[in-house]
Design a protein around this nucleic acid. Structure first.
Lengths: 193, 193
DNA sequence: GGCATAAGCGGACTGTAGTCCACTACTGCG
DNA sequence: CGCAGTAGTGGACTACAGTCCGCTTATGCC
């Protein structure tokens, strides 16, 4: 988990791990949509109250499960080799990010969708989104409003969209379209710098 | 409703109108999220089964309510004056579409979100999406993969995204970012905002 | 007008997310 | 070591979306 603000009691930690393990197993066995929160609680041997206290809701549980994978990608971006890492040129790096993030979403499609679809606006409030957004924004520093453009680009990487597009045009065409869009952002800069 | 494939029985039509009227009233009184399907059924004086038989689910009810507004915009696009209508240049027309659609979403934010958020992928299956997509695709005919690019552009107009962005950067910056993105797709040096 | 038939109806029922709160048992302190 | 206090627990409970199926009634035909 991301930040235990205060030290966590031993029994609580044990239960949290039990829940994560049970959830991971059930989700992979029956699919994300085939598992109820009751089932997770029962399989983990805890009560429902405990489950919700720790993870807030279904989306929160999904986020916790994604946490590790997500951090791998963040690590590669911050310290890994080019083109993802800091040694690449911005445009190439942004293209690489889009491709890598697309892979990440596709690899965990249902979980990511679940994590983005809980309460309205959930996607935009989670720490991970802030990270991706900051990264893209910095790579778009030449734009007049890099912050807004970063959001716009990330919209096309929302799980809901990625899943639907994978279905109807395939991941390759989606990736190519994103790459083209990125090129457009470098080629048609409205900034004077 | 869009197309009664077969003639509809008189009592059915009466009930459908009662439901739409009741739903419109309740939604505007208490907000979309403050109204349950039971409440709509009760207010319309029909049973729950009837409500679901006609509208399938919550999202379907939202779509039915949006139907008329949506068609107004479609009409302006198909036959209205420039820049939205067919007499404008593609780029200007696409910019105008993005702005107009953005307004449409913002004007009915909760309903549109509801209509897009029902079952996973709902947004992409409804007829309206097909219409917008076709329109954008035709305006992007010069692109290598106009179909994919149209999807990518529309991703930034999903209700979820529009609502979140309105909150955090404001509609104007979102609109400007979309315009810039469109300019990028035309490969051009800038045109006036 | 009377009848057959299927479209339409409605409300009881099911499954699930999320809440609540009385109870339990760690943990730190004296 | 024993106690106080609070973090943690669990399962009964609520609210709601969506399903099911036996009953009702509009409609078209004779």
């Amino acid at each position: 988990m991301r930040t235990p603000e205060v030290k966590e009691r031993a029994d609580a930690a044990r239960n949290r791990n039990a829940v994560l393990a049970a959830a991971a197993r059930l989700f992979s066995e029956k699919g994300v949509d085939g598992v109820s929160m009751d089932a997770v609680a029962a399989a983990a041997g805890v009560g429902k109250g405990t489950l919700f206290r720790r993870f807030t809701d279904r989306a929160g549980l999904a986020m916790a499960l994604l946490d590790e994978r997500e951090r791998e990608l963040q690590e590669k971006i911050l310290r890994g080799p080019a083109p993802l890492g800091p040694d690449a040129e911005p445009r190439a790096r942004l293209r690489a990010f889009a491709a890598a993030y697309l892979d990440y979403v596709r690899a965990h499609a249902d979980l990511v969708r679940l994590s983005e679809t809980g309460t309205p606006g959930a996607r935009y409030r989670i720490g991970a989104y802030a990270f991706w957004h900051l990264h893209v924004k910095l790579l778009l520093a030449h734009r007049e409003d890099a912050e807004a453009d970063a959001h716009t680009l990330l919209a096309a990487l929302a799980a809901e969209h990625v899943i639907a597009m994978t279905d109807r045009i395939g991941a390759d065409r989606l990736a190519a379209s994103l790459a083209g869009m990125i090129d457009g952002l470098y080629g048609a800069s409205r900034s004077t710098s």
